[in-house]
Structures are given as structure tokens and as C-alpha cells.
């Protein structure tokens, strides 16, 4: 398949060629699944909700006017579906204390984890993200994995820029706190 951008396939879907939607699903499925997983924290439920998000986006694709990126519009649908799902289930939020971490501990943690092989680090970081508060985990994923700007995260989550920055600051500390706690277990093996 040649390198065509999303708008080409969106136009095809709008004119009734639903097979073109397959390309959009294939391209965005990982990030949609990640967003949902960060919030619902259960793979089976995340898969169901991610599928529903794609179906909902397909049904309302005519309302997409291209004012934002297609991915931003799609992520917003997935985010809203996940949040309404968690409201129904009322997940327990674990509050982690990030203030106890000293600068030295953060440096040591970084130093040790940066030496780990990428595949292994990928697994450890994803596991650590799942221990964070849903919103913090999502913001970290969008900012560091998807390289989204604060402005784009604002469009998806409807949180204010200052709120996103505060959450990013807190989530960074909490993530290092989790990694620091798990360090002994991982490196003891």
C-alpha cells in the first residue's frame, strides 16, 4: 500500500467505501488500545472498548471536518468511551506519594533502567504505567510515547493546559517512584 495520509482514506469511507476504514483501524489500533488500557486497566475490557471506539468513529465519520488531526478526533472518542466506562465501574484510584523521592534516587533509577534492553524496558514501563492513576498514565503515554503536545492532549482530554502540566510533573515523579520500588525485584533476578 502506498504512503497515503489519513484524509485520503477518510474521504473514501465518506463516499461509501467502508473497506478503506481497515487502513485507519490498522494504523491507529495500537494507540487507541493503549489509551483505553491506561484508563480501564484490563486488557479484555480495553479491547472491547477500543473496538467500540472505532465503530463509533465509523458511524460519525461524516461529522469529522478535518479541523484537527484524525488521530486526535479518534483518541477523544476512545477517551470519552473509556471514562464513561470507568465511571460505571468506579475503579479504585491508588494514590502514590511522589514527594519522598530524592534527586539521587531519580538519577539512580534512570541510570539502572536505561541500561536494560529495549524490549524488557518496554514491558517494565508499560507495567509501571498501569499502576498510575488512569489520567496520569494516559497523559504520560500521549506525551512520551505518542509525542503529543500539551495543546493536543488538551483537545483529547478537555483538561486545561496548566492542569496537564501539573499532572505530567506529578506522574513523572510517581513513575520514578514505582520504578525505584520495583528496582530491587527486577535487578535481583
Amino acid at each position: 500500500m502506498s504512503k497515503k495520509d489519513d484524509s485520503y482514506f477518510i474521504e473514501k469511507v465518506k463516499t461509501g467505501n467502508s473497506d478503506s476504514y481497515k487502513y485507519l483501524v490498522e494504523k491507529h489500533k495500537n494507540m487507541i488500545f493503549t489509551i483505553v488500557l491506561r484508563i480501564v486497566k484490563n486488557r479484555e475490557e480495553a479491547e472491547e472498548i477500543a473496538q467500540d471506539a472505532f465503530i463509533k468513529a465509523f458511524q460519525s465519520i461524516n461529522s469529522f471536518k478535518g479541523q484537527s488531526k484524525f488521530s486526535t478526533w479518534l483518541y477523544k472518542i476512545a477517551y470519552n468511551l473509556s471514562v464513561s466506562h470507568t465511571r460505571k465501574k468506579k475503579y479504585e484510584i491508588i494514590n502514590l506519594d511522589e514527594n519522598l523521592l530524592s534527586d539521587n534516587i531519580i538519577f539512580e533509577t534512570y541510570n539502572e533502567f536505561s541500561k536494560i534492553e529495549e524490549t524488557e524496558r518496554n514491558k517494565i514501563l508499560n507495567d509501571a504505567l498501569n499502576l498510575l492513576n488512569s489520567e496520569d498514565a494516559l497523559i504520560i503515554s500521549l506525551y512520551y510515547i505518542e509525542a503529543y503536545s500539551v495543546q493536543e492532549i488538551e483537545e483529547i482530554t478537555s483538561l486545561t493546559k496548566s492542569n496537564i502540566k501539573i499532572k505530567l510533573y506529578r506522574a513523572r515523579k510517581q513513575l520514578f517512584s514505582i520504578l525505584s520500588d520495583s528496582k530491587e525485584l527486577i535487578f535481583a533476578e
Binding site: 495500537n30 488500557l37 479491547e47 531519580i106 534512570y110 510515547i145
Partner: peptide, 18 residues
């Protein structure tokens, strides 16, 4: 530094896949 460390740690990290 924390910001820099985070960027370094997440370099090459892929999102989860269904």
C-alpha cells in the same frame, strides 16, 4: 533532569497492541 530522563527512558518504547 527528570524530564530528560523520562524522554530517554521512553525512547523507542512502543504502545501496547491489541
Amino acid at each position: 533532569h527528570t524530564e530528560k530522563y523520562m524522554k530517554e527512558l521512553f525512547k523507542g518504547i512502543k504502545s501496547d497492541s491489541p
